[in-house]
Nucleic acid binder design. Structure first.
Lengths: 192, 192
DNA sequence: GCTATCTTTGACAGCAATGTCAAACATGAC
DNA sequence: GTCATGTTTGACATTGCTGTCAAAGATAGC
């Protein structure tokens, strides 16, 4: 097999993810990706076809990392503690960077959904997996605290709330305010 | 005063709002606005300066309309009924159109926040007013049902949840699913 | 009617991005 | 070392949009 790729794909996709995280799907151009990865535009076209494909690959890594982090955060002895830790993880994730870069999946849901069905599906898949993850963790924790609603519904509401927080963050709600909103939800679901 | 504007400003801004609602802030070009309003690009530049200014004016009308609708929807005899009606109004609002156009303020928060501080402030102002509206209505309703959290916090969580629903809608959650998420929240806050 | 004033119109130059391609290049297989 | 194969590179044509402007047009006040 001669004629071999000259750049490190893992490295390049990781850098590409940084660019997308920073600028969002729509605002990043192939030139941005070329600059960010150190790979020429033509090479990127040759290797991946275009922006959407690069995004989907980079987003795959994002998904894996986010779910792993969320899972770790949920590892707490009570439902309340697990959810507070989970929300704290979310808030820290999307207020990282200066200026804060926001939540990539939420930005993608809004920006890319209409113009890229594949990106839409990728985000939807992430949310579905996240809901399953939250539900599984909650149903595992037997701390005697029962919510006033079905646990599946509670998990979905939790996921939905992460999206709400991501939007609020974009209009200058502070991290502490976001955590407070989350705590309000957790208290409503599982008490104090 | 000679040299007078040839087009109906109210009509034009209303049409412009339709365009923004349909395509979102970022994706609408001045040409889109010219086509949508029937006013030439040059005239729009002359009258308003550019896209941001047109958006802000159109968004003002959106804000007024949305708050009026929300207020009407909240006019129910119990907290639970008021909130369910409110969320139903939200869901109907942003699943309108074919294909559904989503929630303009949420799309703007994500799309425009970084590139237009004024748009960001406009969205933030809308959310603040909405929170006040919800809080006021809830605190007025004396149906004997008390939430397990502070009412101000509850109102903010409600507003945040509308944002969450708006994001979920973008990745193909159906109207009924969105209403179900909302109901889960309402039940958590005020019981069945 | 005339005029001053503002608006409308179509055209223009500029910019940023896209997607493609031929030529130059690197490398594994033999 | 040669070759076949896929990659890299810089250039190119194209597109869509922006912002501006001079000339033409409309209208209120006189």
């Amino acid at each position: 097999m001669a004629g071999v790729r000259q750049f490190d794909e893992r490295e390049a996709l990781s850098r590409a993810l940084d660019v997308f995280t920073d600028r969002g799907f729509r605002a990043t151009s192939m030139l941005d990706l070329a600059t960010g990865t150190g790979v020429q535009r033509g090479s990127l076209y040759n290797a991946y076809g275009g922006k959407e494909e690069i995004f989907l690959r980079a987003f795959g890594e994002y998904t894996a990392g986010f779910l792993a982090g969320a899972s770790a955060a949920l590892d707490r002895p009570t439902k309340r503690a697990a959810l507070l830790s989970f929300f704290d993880y979310c808030v820290r994730t999307f207020t990282a960077g200066t200026p804060a870069h926001g939540c990539l999946s939420t930005r993608t849901a809004i920006e890319a959904a209409t113009e890229s069905p594949r990106a839409e599906s990728a985000v939807r898949a992430l949310l579905d997996e996240l809901e399953t993850l939250v539900y599984t963790k909650l149903s595992t924790l037997d701390d005697g605290v029962e919510p006033p609603v079905d646990l599946h519904a509670a998990a979905r509401l939790v996921v939905s709330t992460t999206r709400g927080l991501a939007v609020m963050e974009r209009v200058r709600y502070e991290p502490d305010e976001l955590r407070e909103i989350a705590e309000t939800l957790v208290t409503s679901l599982f008490g104090r």
